[in-house]
Write a protein that binds this DNA or RNA. Sequence first.
DNA 1: GCAAAGCACGAAAACGGTTTCGTGTTAATA
DNA 2: TATTAACACGAAACCGTTTTCGTGCTTTGC
Lengths: 342, 342
Amino acid sequence: MKRKITLKHIARELDVSISTVSKALKNSEEISRETKEKIQAFAKLYNYKPNNIAISLKNKRTKNIGVIIPDIVHHFFTTVFRGIEKYANDKGYNVIVCVSDESFDKEVINMEMLANGSIDGFIMALSAETQLKNDYNHLKQVTDQGIPLVLFDRVTDEVNCDKVIIDDQAAAHMAVSKMIADGRQRIALVTTEDYLNVSSKREEGYRKALEEHNLPVREELILRLPYQYEDEKLSEVFFATQEVDAVLCVNEIFAVRTIRFLEDNDLRVPSDVSVIGFTDGILSRLSNPTLSSVAQHGEEMGTIAAKMLIDKVESDIEEGEEEYRTEVVEATLIERESTRSS
Amino acid sequence: MKRKITLKHIARELDVSISTVSKALKNSEEISRETKEKIQAFAKLYNYKPNNIAISLKNKRTKNIGVIIPDIVHHFFTTVFRGIEKYANDKGYNVIVCVSDESFDKEVINMEMLANGSIDGFIMALSAETQLKNDYNHLKQVTDQGIPLVLFDRVTDEVNCDKVIIDDQAAAHMAVSKMIADGRQRIALVTTEDYLNVSSKREEGYRKALEEHNLPVREELILRLPYQYEDEKLSEVFFATQEVDAVLCVNEIFAVRTIRFLEDNDLRVPSDVSVIGFTDGILSRLSNPTLSSVAQHGEEMGTIAAKMLIDKVESDIEEGEEEYRTEVVEATLIERESTRSS
DNA sequence: GCAAAGCACGAAAACGGTTTCGTGTTAATA
DNA sequence: TATTAACACGAAACCGTTTTCGTGCTTTGC
């Protein structure tokens, strides 16, 4: 086993000082050509690589960024992460991921673990519980220490920092308007029961689109479901009312399950009922029928978030004007088989 | 902005030495009760947290583990990662993820980036390109340095280290045997064209099961597809031969697309054709019909891999007997709508 | 009353680098 | 020949901890 070699080893072996070795390996003008060549050759031979930890301690820069997301087995977060990872890696940064599991406590613990020198900045999406508690002290503590922070998707106005979001309201508005244009009249909304920022924005967009087209907003057509639900739940809307001709779902899974439920109850998609979901993931592309879906462009969001963060990290202004930006990524409606004009 | 406070600050402020502060905060017996209380109170007040980087440098342990996977937007890898992350976090470790994107070069670069002190050990699944090139020098270099390494799923015999795999051959064997027991006779295999270790193991299991049940292995029933393929490709088997009554697919996506293709060509699943896939992910559970699938228990694999790695990292024996283990996680066949006896 | 112990704390090295500021030697200049 | 500049390198501080080894002072024991 060849242990890692250090500057000290090289210095001892070649009978020069540590500083000389350091400078030689950086090709400093201070060192004579022959000494440099000797040292560089030796370093190459023994495959010398500087110790990252030592460098981090010296420059107070780790070249690591911390990413905290509620869930990793989730298509949207995964695509955002890919965007972050790619951009960061290109810039020479590594990414440390922590999963909050939608829990406030885990989010706090993870942030504290990383905030003590392990990372240069954070990118995160708030956990559901954090949004419910409305407690953002852990975030403020981090920003107070001068650690850059970028929030994406699940954001809050309570914290001053860079953000990247999609305009959920506009996206839902677009989807509903599309259905109305296709001749749909009784449009249901299937959303989550917990009060996530994104869900409520989508609901707003849904309501606004109906109102703008002079259609009544029927509360009985809005169904709020937990993440784990029984199919019978769906019957409240689709059986009791029996007149739905279109459904907007706030995620892919709800959409696919809705389609399946409809077809099991002899309603055809899209001829009888038109369906649109959010999160243009693998399910949308491969379900049967394929699902029209609002693409959130997760990878792009990730790239933007990473760029914003790294720009902040590498800017020397430290904390000048405190100018924070919010980037809005435009959502796109991908039309597939689950929507056709009636 | 309150900058991070250090031992030195506390020492200066309280007019004691740095060593005294350090010991006091560790509740050392050496320090008098009153001094300890004073220092601890001060530290609490200013929210002192020791700098991770400095500690890492001192004990040559980062409490970080590096995970390198070919793709993050992939259900199986994602579940494995979740298992790793959970276990590691419980043990006080953070996880740095790098994505090799199935590229040999990226894999090498990522390993080198992390191997210079950033992590205490690696968990990885080999990239497709690495398996093709059959070049594992980057792995050997890492293990030669005494850095623990655990391979999962995509492994190789060329490297001596801990491994965790599923018995792909047995899993495929089980799936095919099940179909035969259900009365299927002409069973097709849809697999990848690149020579991944896992695919070939599954093919072996497929062949073996047929042979053991005295069914002929027809090469024309084995279809090798690229990751991105056109549906027409499928017709080679299913139209040309026209007699398939069951299909084993080496992943979920191939399975779902196969089902869709069959149904578009007026073959009913499962009555006419029975289908089983690998990777029991979201697609299997939500496709229509739901897909019978070989569950690889990714999260369990992740947990095991993390445990193996951390045990190695924390064992002091350094490099004693060089005893490496290979854990085999048993696959399970989850039966759903796409298989029913004919 | 003096040596030995015990107590409470500090100095300094170490981890592995970077960087500033000398300093001794040689060569060029007045 | 004496002064100076350039050159090539080394000493040492520093980043923030931990830890070993003193050391001065008080207390105990005889």
